[in-house]
Structure formats: C-alpha cells, structure tokens
Design a protein around this nucleic acid. Sequence first.
DNA 1: CTTGGCACTCAAGAACGTGGAGTGCCAAGC
DNA 2: GCTTGGCACTCCACGTTCTTGAGTGCCAAG
Lengths: 337, 337
Amino acid sequence: MLDDRKLAVLRAIVEDYVSTNEPVGSKALADRHNLGVSPATIRNDMAMLEEQGYIAQPHTSAGRVPTDKGYRLFVDRLSTIKPLSVAERRAIETFLGGAYDLDDVVTRTVRLLAQLTRQVAVVQYPSLTRSAVRHVELVPIGPERLLLVIITNTGRVEQRTIEMPEGVSEESIAHLRALLNAHLDGCWLNDVPGVVAEVPDRLPPDERPLAATVLSVLLETLIEKHEEKIVIAGAANLARADLSQSLREVLEALEEQVVLMRLLGEMGDPAGLTVRIGTENPHESLFTTSVVASGYGAGDQTVARLGVLGPTRMDYPGTMGAVRAVARYVGQILAGS
Amino acid sequence: MLDDRKLAVLRAIVEDYVSTNEPVGSKALADRHNLGVSPATIRNDMAMLEEQGYIAQPHTSAGRVPTDKGYRLFVDRLSTIKPLSVAERRAIETFLGGAYDLDDVVTRTVRLLAQLTRQVAVVQYPSLTRSAVRHVELVPIGPERLLLVIITNTGRVEQRTIEMPEGVSEESIAHLRALLNAHLDGCWLNDVPGVVAEVPDRLPPDERPLAATVLSVLLETLIEKHEEKIVIAGAANLARADLSQSLREVLEALEEQVVLMRLLGEMGDPAGLTVRIGTENPHESLFTTSVVASGYGAGDQTVARLGVLGPTRMDYPGTMGAVRAVARYVGQILAGS
DNA sequence: CTTGGCACTCAAGAACGTGGAGTGCCAAGC
DNA sequence: GCTTGGCACTCCACGTTCTTGAGTGCCAAG
C-alpha cells in the first residue's frame, strides 16, 4: 500500500513543513530532496497519501500539510531520535550539576528543558506515593505547636504545623517520634496508613490524644499532597509558535493543575518516551499541540514524569532526544544525592 | 490650566477607553457622560489635553486615547480606589481561609489575585531577610547525614542536608542544637551571621568540626535563599488583553526572575499601593503594561510584595481595590498563623 | 509506472472606491 | 470670552474587483 518511496515522500513533507511552516508542494519536494523522480510522480504519491489520511491540503491548490495521523506514522516509523550534540550534553551537565536540593533540581530541569527544546517544559515533582519514608521528625515550636516533617527517599520534604493538645510533655513527643520512626522508616508511603493504624495501641493512654492528632495530620498530608506538584517553564515559546487563536486556550489549560496531571499521567509506557499528537491529547484545548514525555527516577524506577509541549508542527526527533537525555540525567542526579 | 471640566473629560476618556478598547471621540463622550456641554466644547478641551500630552490620537481623524501621562493623572487625582463587593470579600475569605501552610497561602493568593483582577498576578514569598528565626532543628538521617531545618516567624521553612564528619555522637548534635536555638531564637536573619560567629568558641574542641560544617551550611542557606522566590499566575489573561505583538516579549520578561524581582522590588512606598504605568516600568518589554503592587506582611511590617500586571489600558480603581484587599487579607493570615 | 503538458482552482495581495467617524476651524450667539 | 452649530476636510476601515502564481488533477505519450 505504502511503498518505500511514498514513505520517503511523507518524511520529506513532514521535515519540510516543520522547518518552513508552509504547505509543501510537489515541486519544492523534488527540488530539495533528491527522490529521483519528477514532481508529477510525487503528485501521484501525494494523492495516495492524502487518500489514506496522512496529509491534507488547507485548501485546493495549496501544498500539503501532515495530519496528526501523518505525524504519528512519522514518529513511529520514519524518524529516529536525534542524540544531543556534545555541547548540549555538556550544557545539561553543568546546568543541572550545580543543583543543591530537590526544589532546585526541579526548577533547573524545567528551565533547561524549555531552553533546549524552545518549547513549553513540564516537570512533575517526584511523587510521594512512589517514595518511601526516610525519616519523620517532630519539632516543638512554641508551647502549643508542633512541626511535623516527613523526609522521603526522593529528597522531598513535607512539613505541617500541628496545634497540640495542652499539657503535652517533651517525653511524650520524643516517645511518639521514636515510635513513628521505628515503624515508618523505609516504609512505602502507600503502606503508611496501614502501618500507622496500630501505633496508638502501643502507647500509654495519656499519650494517645497527641498521637491521634499527629497521625491524622500525617495521613492528611500524605493524601493531600498526593495531589502532585507540577512546574512549567517556557510559556513564552508558545507565542513564537503561531497557535494564534488557540493560544489563549492552551495557556489556560496549562494553568490548570488537573489538565497538566492528566497530560503527563495518562501517557502509556511509564518509563520510556511517549509522544501524544494533536487530537490524541486528553483535553480539547490541546488538540493543536503535541506532547513528548518521559518518566524519570532514581535508577530504573520511575518516580515522576517530565516532558514538553509544543505545536503539532514540531521537530520530533530533536525534541525526543532532548527529553530523553534530560530525563536520564535527572535520574542520575536523584540517584546520586 | 486644566479646569475641572477638562479633568472630567480626561476621566471620561479613560473610563470609556478602558471599557470599550476603542479610541473615544467627542460625540460619544457627550452622549455617554452628561458633562452638560456640547461635543464642540469637548473638542476644544480635548485639543488642550492633547497639547499637554495627556491624550493622543492614533491617527488624524480618530478618537483620542490616554497616554501614560494621562493614566498617571487619572490614577493620582481623578480616581478613587474601588472597594470590593461583599461577594468578592467573601470569596477572598473562603478561598484564603482554607490554606494550611505558607506554600499554600502563596499559591492560593496568586491564583485568587489573577482571577479577581483577570490579569497576571505576581506574589513574592515572604523574604527571609526581613524575618526572624523561630526555630532551628538538626535531624540525623542516616549515619553520615544531617538535615538542617530553619523555621521563620513568617512560616517559611528552609531545609538543607549536610554531610557530617564521621563519628559524631548524638549528644554532640543535641548539644549544638540546643546552643543554636538558645542563641538564634527570635534573632533577625540579618543578624544571624554576627550571632553565629561566636558559637564555636563555646563548644568543647571535639565538637567544633561539626559546628563549623553546620554553620557554614546555615549561612550559605540564608545567603543563597536571599535570592527570593516569586510565583505568578494568570498568564493566560495576557492573551485576552491584546498586547498582540509585544505579548511574547512580556511573557519572556515574566519568566525572568530578575525582571520580576525588579518589578516588585523597585516600587516606591514599601507598604502602600504603588502603580507603575507603561514606560515607568524598569524593563523595556513591559512598556505596554502597568503594574499595581502592594507590600504585605504580618501586622504593619512589610515582609514581601504582591501585585498584578496588565495592559496600561486597565481598570485601575478596581485593580487597586483588589490588590489592596488581598494584601491586607494575606497579612492577617500571616499574623494569625 | 513515470513523465511532461495543460487546463483549472483558489488564496493572497494589490488597486480602487466609498462610507462614516472624527477632527479643526469659524462665525454667530449667550 | 466661553460655548455652540455648521461645515469642509482627513483618513482609516471595509468591501469589491482584478491579477498573479503556486499548486493541483488528469491525460496521453514514453
């Protein structure tokens, strides 16, 4: 159905369209790529490609533009991920190497990705649910207040202040802290609720009110923060790409946490690269955009996702290379720290 | 030079232009506002206002548009800050009331402000330098690591991990912690370096290496985080306002931390409302925009700033009302928590 | 199957006209 | 001296028309 030459034509169309942003005609194709055939032949091929839905004309007597389906075929079968240049790799290393805490890693990553791809970058914080407790701390601050700090093995630190019942002794607090750490150290956050349920029983009755308060806040924190944090950068790059009328919709969508979550969350393969093109996206405002995303994490394990969003008319090989490289490098950083 | 009627005309021009987004002519003015004079008279007044630079025509035979100077006069002398409606006040209270930690307060505030004004909102985190230490905590995590947590009276919590020298005992850590808290509690962050300098002298020699490490990290944290954090929301509102060609520039400017800092930082009166119009802004990309900002803080003391950015063609009275109200309310929240 | 030729289509841009909102100026009126 | 209606003038916005040229589909010959 689609012989090699037709595929070559499709590839050429995608490449030309991406670089020129103008519908590409048969003559231009014959000139710029040496396909070894005449424009007329290419026209025949194009007619067939159009019939099958891989390309379309904005109007009669205009050149062809790839459809979502065309981009999909291009990504799946006609392109190879483009490795980064040495300079780019070096830039990543120096830029991310200087980070000194998780916040810093994440913000640097998102900016780097935006700059590298010249598109909108989206990075999800390492998820709590896929992390384990490294340490729990209870710090009295003032007579009736306590600070609860939870540190995870992904370097994330959550804190909440707690109003204490009156008349709680230092020892009770120390005792509870010891107990919590004994039970929770290394515990997957998913499992925390189960483990924690039995803690009050092991305490003397007079310490139970404190424990109840602290535990309810602790669980609340884990659940509420389950709503995971996402940062974006490079929104200005959207203005460069001429999504014109839909630009505002896209910007609005990007400000909704929920949409962003779905954007990254519903990607197929959790570890590898995923590309979602145009109408494949989960939200109507993003039908004119594509998303290239990847999981990342310390070692093999995926703890969160990152990616970029841009017009469907996007340099897929380059973008995919950048996303993959950044994801890997962030993984190394997380593993090493 | 400018009698009352001319000022009334200017006010009417600003109001009409803001609401219609079209150059306003003498006839429209006479119709919509009852100035008690004929269009011809208004034309004379307009000629004079133009001569003095308060208004301008986009081209001959078009209506008039306020200049930056015109807006300035309007803001300074012709308008009064518009108090929020009861519904709006209630919305602020319920929306901000539910916040449970500083991060939450700040993100809710910025979103609220964006929604209320339908513009881009900018909120600066309460600055460290203008805060005081409330508590310092040292938490051992793992055999060779320590977590340093600094809690300020503005609710901000900073944490850093520290690589420990080997063979440090629990007691040494507890000792250092006690000493730090004794010295630093209530201490202005500005004064921390001075206070901290003498701490090592009071320790037995074998605890000094630990102290040195911890103190250097502590100081580093205070200095580095001096670079203050800013969050924005509502960028999509920029697309609605038709800054058209400059939209991209504005978006780019908003992504630069430095520009944002200057935007809020260089405003005059630290406590009250400040308005900066068009070319009064510190960055060329923002010459088509105006900024309405205010300090906020617990009690009287200003610990940071917040504000909104929009086209110069902006509803100043309404925006100023919203910014002032939100700033006050955030102040109350900070004071109460 | 490929290719050159050819008639056809249609968006984009230039050229042109025109309607109307808005102005400045002037002379008459209060 | 300020205000006002009248009036000529300007010039943008908008619609119409024409032209141009890139690009197509089809066909008959190679």
